[in-house]
């Protein structure tokens, strides 16, 4: 969802910017007095400033309510899974889960920096955190669909970076049904 939102917002804005720049190019040929243009321009700029500030304020308000490093309310007693990254593989203390089971992935590394990214069967990135030596990052995630998920390394860690994967299996919350 967030990937789609980022894409749509970026494309719409870039098209808007292209339009504005082309408009100015199209109206750059005939010279006019600069002072009236400046006066009008500053008025437009003030409105533009307010629009940008309002958009940023709204985006900040809504997005900061959903911080991925905060434990979600429904995950009061999550299943704790230790994830240890090393050149070039992952060791998970458990890799089979049920749909709807809140999980706290406690991620660390025994050598260099790695990343832990969880991908669904369509290869869409669902969640990630960094795996760091000497530190443990806790990533909360609850699988919503049964299936086979992949864990990919998302921080460059050396020659075997791209072979650093693991598999997670998610089964229905009760045998024979998905959530």
């Amino acid at each position: 969802m967030y990937q789609q939102a980022a894409w749509v917002i970026s494309v719409v804005f870039i098209l808007f910017v292209i339009f504005v720049f082309l408009y100015v190019v199209a109206h750059s040929g005939q010279r006019a007095e600069y002072e009236p243009i400046q006066k009008k321009g500053y008025r437009i700029r003030n409105v533009w400033f307010l629009v940008v500030i309002a958009a940023m304020g709204l985006a900040t308000f809504y997005t900061l309510r959903d911080l991925p490093f905060e434990r979600p309310a429904h995950a009061a007693d999550p299943t704790v899974v230790q994830v240890e990254a090393r050149q070039f593989g992952f060791v998970l203390s458990r890799n089979e889960f049920r749909v709807g089971e809140p999980i706290a992935f406690q991620v660390t590394s025994v050598d260099v920096n790695h990343g832990v990214g969880i991908y669904d069967e369509n290869m869409e990135l669902l969640a990630q955190t960094q795996a760091m030596p000497k530190y443990t990052n806790t990533m909360y995630y609850t699988f919503e669909k049964p299936g086979t998920y992949q864990v990919l390394c998302l921080e460059y860690c050396g020659i075997g970076h791209h072979v650093m994967t693991a598999t997670i299996t998610v089964v229905p919350s009760q045998e024979g049904e998905g959530k």
Binding site: Y2, A6, I9, S10, I14, V17, I18, T63, L67, G115
Partner: peptide
């Protein structure tokens, strides 16, 4: 200017969660 918006999107924590290092 055009590069600013996808950059700002990526600096949003919830978006970065699924786009960081992509």
């Amino acid at each position: 200017v055009a590069g600013v918006i996808p950059a700002i999107a990526d600096a949003t924590i919830v978006i970065n969660h699924v786009m960081h290092n992509t």
